[in-house]
């Protein structure tokens, strides 16, 4: 029986052959590319400088693959931040040929285009930690300042939950798009306001503020308005939307900020987007468990 099932999963030889061929094709060196890499250790160096390395690259090679090859074989001192290698952790955002991109999601050939040079530097609008790794301290402080968690006034229920808070699919859809943020910093790096106003909260933090303000489980609308409705808050956004243009997750923080502005103005006239959701009563929970 077990071998019968296993047989179902064996690939036909021609498919297997095609898969192997495609994989070989993907990793076959096709072009020599020069990597121009920004090098700077603020603790040691007087000024930044550039270093160049040449690599044979394949169709499947990402910029992060190339950097790890360079680090492993040519320059072990190279500072680069990464973790998941699959566009989920947001660690590897950097300037690739002048644009904010995730190194693990960008193929070298795609970045090089018709040319054969790929220039890599740390994210604009961020202090440099070392080489390609930017310092995210201020970025995370801004994120934290908008209180990115569910705020409730019913502390007893919050600390000893009797059930999940009720939320419909439509209510979830209101903020779903903004939950996709991986805090890569690309948006803040591309923002022209953040380039001059380093106190500006920035697209990431502002979009996250909106995300929680319209979450029906949340009761922190006015607390967050006090944070974002300031001289360096959401009103400094000029809606150039460079942030949304570079966001690797399609979060569209610029849209979030415009919705946030509208919400704040409506709040002035007494509007509240929702009543804080109540915990599902025990009876409903029991029924849904038994499938009733």
């Amino acid at each position: 029986m077990a071998s019968e099932e296993a047989k179902d999963y064996v690939l036909p030889p021609e498919v297997l052959e095609e898969t192997v061929r495609a994989s070989e094709e993907l990793w076959k060196p096709v072009k020599k590319v020069k990597f121009r890499i920004y090098k700077y250790n603020p603790k040691k160096d007087y000024a930044p400088h550039w270093e160049e390395h040449e690599l044979e690259v394949s169709k499947g090679m990402t910029v992060l693959d190339a950097l790890l090859t360079i680090k492993g074989e040519m320059d072990p001192t190279l500072g680069v931040r990464y973790s998941c290698r699959m566009g989920l952790c947001g660690s590897c955002a950097m300037m690739i040929n002048g644009k904010q991109m995730l190194a693990c999601q960008t193929r070298v050939l795609e970045a090089a285009g018709d040319g054969d040079v790929v220039e890599l530097r740390p994210l604009d609008n961020f202090p440099v930690e070392r080489d390609l790794a930017a310092d995210f301290t201020h970025f995370f402080e801004k994120h934290k300042s908008v209180k990115p968690w569910i705020i409730r006034s019913d502390e007893v229920e919050l600390n000893n939950p009797t059930g999940p808070y009720k939320q419909t699919v439509d209510e979830y859809a209101r903020y779903y798009q903004f939950t996709d943020c991986i805090k890569c910093g690309a948006c803040l790096s591309a923002c022209p306001t953040a380039a001059t106003d380093y106190e500006y909260l920035g697209p990431q933090a502002l979009a996250q503020a909106y995300r929680y303000m319209v979450d029906t489980r949340d009761d922190g609308l006015d607390v967050r308005i006090a944070v974002v409705d300031t001289e360096h808050g959401c009103w400094r956004c000029h809606f150039a939307a460079s942030c949304s243009d570079v966001c690797p997750r399609g979060v569209d923080p610029a849209q979030g900020i415009q919705l946030l502005k509208r919400l704040i103005i409506k709040r002035k006239f007494g509007y509240k987007p929702h009543k804080p959701a109540e915990a599902l009563p025990a009876k409903v929970k029991a029924e849904s468990k038994s499938g009733g």
Binding site: T193, T196, D197, Y198, E199, Y200, E231, H232, R236
Partner: peptide
């Protein structure tokens, strides 16, 4: 005022500019 706030982001200057 908005331009100045953005060009001189120091918080202690923000109110004075206003």
């Amino acid at each position: 005022r908005v331009i100045l706030i953005e060009m001189v982001p120091d918080r202690c200057w923000t109110k004075w500019i206003g």
